[in-house]
Simulated scan of single mutants.
Amino acid sequence: MKFSIIIPALNEAQNIQGCLSALQPLRNDCELIVVDGGSTDGTPAIAEPLADQVISAPKGRARQMNAGARQATGEVLLFLHADTFLPDNAIQLIREQINRPAPWGRFDIRLSGDHFMLKVISQMMNWRSRLTGIATGDQAIFVTHEAFTAVGGYPDISLMEDIALCKALNKISPPLCLKAKVNSSGRRWLQFGLYKTILFMWSLRLRYFFGADPKTLARLYSGGHLWKP
């Protein structure tokens, strides 16, 4: 079973080398595809020697990840953020459990950092995901190429594309919720303020739930001085 790890990137010069370096031991089983959304900081040049493919796509995680999936040759697609690191046995765990019975899933998450609330937030994210069957992009969503194609891939929306994909995949089956943890940077949460970030992100989710236009949410997201959509 071959895997394709797809990494959307936009001005990730500070993170992309560390991300790809950590994935080098997996290259016997995985192809690494970086999809750049128009970086101006040299991200593609840094990624080139460490990836199997570095391609360009219109800015936007959904568009970039769909572009990567179109180029992917793996039976399983794994979507990974540039500031997130997989557990050591990630590929083995997916191989052992995928299609038994679910063709998709995600990992638990650990937000790195010293603030005690990062552990609380991580645990709440994991519990919420198990309860709802919805994963966030930083939980490293994985899915068979067949199932991804069957639901039409990521919808071409400006924000909340991970929620929309999970809702579509839930019509096939609930996700595999792997207890092994990816490590994702808590730096951005701390920069904006933990409690402000929690309230802000929940307000975006509620607006989306009640039918707000993802383009409007994306503008709010960018204007909130959080990480880029």
Rank of each mutant, 00 (worst) to 15 (best):
I6Y: 00
N11M: 01
N11P: 05
I16P: 06
Q17S: 15
L20D: 06
P25E: 09
R27Q: 12
E31D: 15
V35G: 02
P49F: 08
L50M: 15
L50F: 07
L50Y: 12
K59P: 06
G60Q: 04
R61L: 14
N66I: 02
A67F: 03
T73A: 08
T84P: 00
A90N: 09
L93C: 00
E96A: 09
N99C: 09
A102P: 03
P103M: 10
R106Y: 06
R106P: 00
R110K: 11
L111C: 07
I121P: 04
Q123R: 11
N126K: 04
T132E: 02
H145M: 05
E146N: 11
F148Q: 10
G152K: 07
I157H: 13
E161M: 13
I163Y: 04
A164M: 03
C166Q: 10
K167L: 13
N170T: 14
N170I: 12
P175K: 14
L176Y: 06
L178H: 04
K179I: 06
K179C: 03
N183C: 07
R187A: 15
R187S: 14
L194S: 13
K196Q: 00
L199H: 05
F200C: 15
M201C: 13
M201D: 07
F209R: 13
P214K: 11
A218M: 08
S222Y: 01
G223T: 06
